[in-house]
Design a protein around this nucleic acid. Structure first.
Lengths: 413, 413
DNA sequence: CGGGATTTGTTTATTTGCGGCACAAAGTCA
DNA sequence: TGACTTTGTGCCGCAAATAAACAAATCCCG
């Protein structure tokens, strides 16, 4: 009689309304930076009375704080300034990458308040050990946060690999396979901070987190809400943001662009297939083509950049060639997704000057909508703010902004 | 002081709650086919009292109707059967394609109640003339619908081309460019039915509509809620459905898979670039490779299918070759999107037996998540129910289901 | 065959969150 | 200084959901 094929959203009631509007008001203040009750009211469409009541609750919870009066210059009674509180709940972001671990704490307003980086080669190390080290770093960050009256309400861990349901299915560059990151990390963290209630742990792909950082703290703040994000590293990571939302796919693997095909009969890739993009535009391929030892890592890239800047043709043509292949694949992705912009991060950022023209040429030629060439500057370098740790922390912050009441209650209970 | 960078959702109030729950109850009845008030209540989580009140309103509006009592067999008082009304508001779908125009009327329950097809070659014909003809067909369908007490509340027009904001930017196979379809169609329809209030007209890409038909009336009803949909026609159309929602992209062009690159130095495509998939797996390429006159259209495909069935190696290897290229490109798209399934429609449907193995082989080899091979049958033929006209009509039906109150009020006002 | 158990649908009272309105507070402008 | 404006806050009413009680209709079982 009843088939559950189409899952329905939850019902709505008074409480739903309250939660929704509470979030709305908080985000209005967040986005504005500074606002008054009346301003928020006109912006979100609620009555001043309703906003007053909501703000009162947010003040109680400690999510917003009152400043002085607005020295408006206009007629009328000045309003009281509201700001998102700079203390209280915060997001803890962790990025575990090939040769470093970064942890940061971001407050509700979105500013980076604590940042710790540890350079360490994680390749071949036991996952549990890597996660334990990351947890130690995270615990230190929580300590520093406490000194600033910030209390992380959750951790989000970003890793370079396919992650779904709290476990890394595979992370070839780390050599990981089927690692239950969330569980292991939570356990390690709990062992370090036994007094506190356990922090909820979530996890995601590193490129996804970086793209979200770009959305929330980088280009997104300038109005770019749909973009394809690429990071050239050892592998090539990719993520998609559409209308301000990360596209995760059915299982959370969306965005894997590194293994799109350049030439079906091309060189063998470590994924087992032939002719993947990584073999043409990955870090190693780039360096090899320019005649630089691929084992030198970031130093190699810096060297490549110097040579290109000096005008060495071998370097430039190596970059140009990679850019052409990148452009071919990216134009396919643009046709599939129809984003507003393409953002290049990682090693591509440094090589942008020589890479961009080649990529752009292919895009102009191959993007079928014809929109590409029309209004220019749709290919851009990722802002340096787009780092995965910050994006990861942002995920937590966003959760709080989306439902402040839930977090306040949890805090109280 | 206030920057509108992050657009906020609208506020919520009592009316919002009511609208939401009204839709929830209607959809619960819709999905169940038959339900009782109490059953709906437990399913959506509302009290029986609340559901009673909501159902009463839906009865008034004429969106649901009461049947007899449930002969439950279980203890307790039997409930009154509720069904989505088979008369009243309906969706009108129009598909304008290369060599035919289809119009259909779908009722709230999702069944196809009127269907009219006109075979006519639209290539090179003035857009206004094509749209006027489609409008005539639509008007006839509205007439037939009226005889069944169905009143279309909107029209959705599907076309093979890039459509955004109510206009076709380009439809190479029709030879159209910058045609304001919505305006022209609305005008033509109004001229034919001057007595009635003008029907709201919307429009979309044909592949998108077909994919939605597949979601709502085909594979989606079997639980496949994330898939990549491909139609092999003169061109190759594509669309993406993720978690039950169509992915439209920033401008509405998402899904264009026909011009992804197989070989950057391959044959020139009519899009201006080189080596596009269409040149390898499009209808013409398929027929030519098999030594059949490409101008014969669907007859040619039927002939190809006969030859393949007879075991002619030229035919089989032509299909196999197309399948391989298709597989290479599709695996790239799967890596990017991470769907649950890939659905092949259009001419691919008939050639499935010989096409599928080649496509599947590439998928198994190239999809990095490693999930592809795991649980099989993720490549499937589109069900015949996946036709664009029905999907288009479904768009209207879905709008009504999503906000019944709005449509009832409009009807009354 | 008749009473208890059970389930359905409705009725009534209660709660809650927003809209509307009035009003005091705190400024600008002439 | 007084008119005008704008802000923030009570107070009342309304709408919609919840909770609880009740009537209706059927099954079950002695």
């Amino acid at each position: 009689m009843k088939n559950n094929l189409t899952p329905l959203e939850p019902k709505a009631d008074k409480a739903t309304v309250r939660r929704h509007n509470l979030s709305l008001v908080l985000r209005a203040v967040h986005d504005a930076g500074e606002a008054t009750r009346a301003g928020v009211a006109t912006h979100v469409g609620l009555t001043r009375a309703a906003v007053s009541s909501l703000v009162e609750q947010l003040l109680e919870y400690g999510f917003v704080s009152e400043g002085g009066k607005t020295s408006s210059g206009q007629a009328g009674r000045p309003g009281t300034v509201l700001r998102v509180s700079r203390s209280g709940p915060a997001g803890l972001g962790v990025e575990i990458n090939i040769d470093y671990v970064t942890v940061c704490v971001v407050d509700l307003a979105g500013t980076d308040r604590v940042r710790l980086v540890e350079h360490v080669d994680n390749r071949g190390v036991q996952p549990s050990e890597v996660l334990a080290r990351a947890a130690r770093l995270a615990a230190r960050a929580v300590g520093s946060a406490a000194e600033q009256d910030l209390v992380p309400v959750g951790v989000h861990v970003a890793l370079p690999g396919l992650v779904t349901g709290g476990t890394v299915r595979q992370a070839p560059n780390l050599g990981w396979q089927r690692v239950a990151v969330e569980g292991l990390f939570a356990q390690a963290l709990l062992a370090l901070r036994p007094l506190h209630r356990p922090l909820p742990v979530s996890s995601d792909n590193e490129a996804n987190a970086a793209a979200l950082a770009e959305l929330w703290y980088g280009a997104g703040t300038e109005g770019v809400r749909s973009f394809l994000y690429l990071t050239g590293e050892i592998g090539i990571g990719g993520a998609l943001v559409l209308r301000g939302e990360l596209l995760r796919g059915a299982h959370g693997f969306a965005g894997e662009i590194g293994h799109m095909v350049v030439d079906p009969d091309g060189p063998l890739c470590r994924c087992g297939a032939r002719g993947c993009l990584e073999q043409y535009a990955g870090q190693s391929a780039l360096l090899e083509a320019a005649g630089i030892d691929a084992g030198t890592g970031m130093q190699g890239v810096a060297e490549l950049e110097r040579r290109a800047r000096r005008g060495e043709s071998a370097a430039r043509s190596a970059i140009e060639r990679a850019g052409r292949h990148l452009g071919v694949v990216v134009s396919g992705a643009v046709n599939l997704f129809d984003p507003d912009a393409v953002m290049l991060g990682g090693v591509y950022r440094e090589l942008m000057d020589w890479l961009a023209p080649a990529v752009d040429r292919e895009l102009a030629r191959r993007v079928v909508s014809g929109l590409w060439s029309e209004d220019g500057k749709r290919l851009r370098a990722s802002s340096s703010l787009g780092d995965a740790a910050r994006g990861a922390a942002g995920v937590i912050v966003r959760e709080v902004l989306a439902d402040p009441a839930a977090h306040a209650e949890r805090d109280a209970g």
